[in-house]
Design a protein around this nucleic acid. Structure first.
Ligand SMILES: [Mn+2]
Ligand SMILES: [Mn+2]
Ligand SMILES: [Zn+2]
Ligand SMILES: [Zn+2]
Lengths: 138, 138
DNA sequence: GCCATAAGTGATACAACATATCACTACTGA
DNA sequence: TCAGTAGTGATATGTTGTATCACTTATGGC
């Protein structure tokens, strides 16, 4: 996960992408900017009762599409959002508390690319997730 | 995916697990037994209008827990069910038509296990999915 | 600074994919 | 045969969104 220090300011990001700066977006930018770890969309909705559900989901999607946030899932499929860094990567997820860390493993990437050739058809992507019980949760 | 020939008879499986043989389960066993590729729960519900939604979902879960079916997801998260084989494996999924194939890659397993040690905490599992556009869809 | 207008908003409805309840039914083993 | 429990399905509810649409507002051009 990107540390708070190296994170882009969300309102700058949205503005740079050509989106308008509105009060709901400022509220979201401020709230998300201080989030550590991963969070659910519904948690954000509860924390910002003045912002509509649709707006929260729309903005989260904007940020995911912009590569600022990642959308992952717990083993049971429950979606989680977390900050992204720019490079291709995968996630280590605590199945208990939902904390998300990123990892890169070039060897794994190479192997998956290699395997792709054995498979008929064109590879369009892959997903790798490692589930743990984190040190804090043990 | 297990070929039809080597597939266990679903009603036998359920009976062996100690479940009762009821008309809905017989209908489900017959329908699923003839399914190729992957399918959605909702498709089954439509094809068996006399069987309740809850029963379909309950039985699918039973079969997943019994290791007879796998539950996977398309890249957009839409759940798919397909026949499983007994060994640990992962999936190659056509993002277009939903066809599911299984694969095993011991090297990848070993690498993920190795990586697990670098991570603080106890590893409880992993997920690897390869998304393709299959030959038929190209 | 004003203004037109396109972008954004939020209430609400709807959708997909389930799970919880609960009164009823029917397998099953004794 | 029959009691007891497993199973059923109608229905309500939950989660995670997307679609609509009338309304509001941020913004760039003047
Ligand atoms: Mn990868
Ligand atoms: Mn594996
Ligand atoms: Zn944890
Ligand atoms: Zn296909």
């Amino acid at each position: 996960m990107a540390t708070l220090a190296e994170r882009p300011r969300l309102d700058d990001v949205l503005e740079d992408l050509g989106y308008r700066m509105t009060p709901p977006r400022r509220l979201l930018a401020r709230l998300l900017g201080n989030k550590a770890g991963s969070f659910s969309a519904e948690a954000i909705i509860e924390e910002l009762p003045t912002v509509g559900r649709a707006t929260v989901y729309r903005t989260l999607k904007l940020l995911v599409d912009a590569g600022i946030l990642c959308k992952t899932a717990l083993p049971d499929g429950a979606p989680r959002y977390s900050f992204d860094d720019a490079r291709h990567h995968h996630h280590v997820i605590c199945a208990n508390c939902g904390k998300v860390e990123e990892f890169r493993k070039p060897v794994v990437e190479r192997l998956l690319r290699a395997m792709a050739k054995e498979v008929g058809g064109a590879v369009v992507g892959h997903r790798v997730e490692l589930y743990i019980t984190c040190a804090d949760c043990l």
